[in-house]
Design a protein around this nucleic acid. Sequence first.
DNA 1: CTGCATCCTGCATGATACTG
DNA 2: CAGTATCATGCAGGATGCAG
Lengths: 137, 137
Amino acid sequence: MSVGHTGVTTEPVVSCGDEHEDCGIREVLDRIGDKWSVLVVVELAQGVRRFRQLQRAVPGISQRMLTLTVRRLERDGLVTRTVHPMVPPQVEYELTAMGHSLTYLVKALTDWSAEHRDAIAQARQEWDAAYPDSGIR
Amino acid sequence: MSVGHTGVTTEPVVSCGDEHEDCGIREVLDRIGDKWSVLVVVELAQGVRRFRQLQRAVPGISQRMLTLTVRRLERDGLVTRTVHPMVPPQVEYELTAMGHSLTYLVKALTDWSAEHRDAIAQARQEWDAAYPDSGIR
DNA sequence: CTGCATCCTGCATGATACTG
DNA sequence: CAGTATCATGCAGGATGCAG
């Protein structure tokens, strides 16, 4: 598509070297990189959960954010939402097969975290000691 | 707390079952969950990079955000920053051992992404078709 | 109980200009 | 080239009230 002639003709060859610019990392990160999705998935990994159960299980999440989070997960095919027509209403959320596969990724995350948490904490302490007023956090 | 008598007395047994409320997932996510860190790490996985190199390799990132990102990575002990006193200035960034270990996690991310990207896209299409005006995105 | 609508705020990010 | 400083802003997320 008419790359031009400014010398910017060289392809970036960016990223992990197997795909386009960002591999598709952004896709996953935009999924699970938000504040609550992973925590909800983790809870659902235990089994079927109702709305209130989820909210209680994920301390700090607001009704609004829980609704948004499960809706997005549902939209992405990671979670199913089952409405039982009764009063009071009962809605159950459950991981799909794809949702379950995500839990393995989450496992990798927690493993890495557990493994390096101390080292990171120490690195930070040292950095903060070296540059007390850096403004970085 | 007075759980009541509605049958919801079962303990949540929250999370991944090995730690407190959020396992520590938040820690990693707060690291790599931001918009640029992972992309920078991916690029640095290729080898030593200078500031401008990084900026060119990560299309769309601003000078400001690149600075912030590498500073944070440095603070966390994931990246080293080496200043070569010369003119024009030359600063090199390189992954630490811990930084390299992160790339394996990133690999898991990209793998999962590649594997489920299509399914997610399809699920979304179907969902959007079913609920055109949901407002969810 | 489940969920949507509304309002409000802070923070992450972006744009731009300036410095060594 | 490699930053720092400043200002602007969009959107994620929190709080609250109402509805089925």
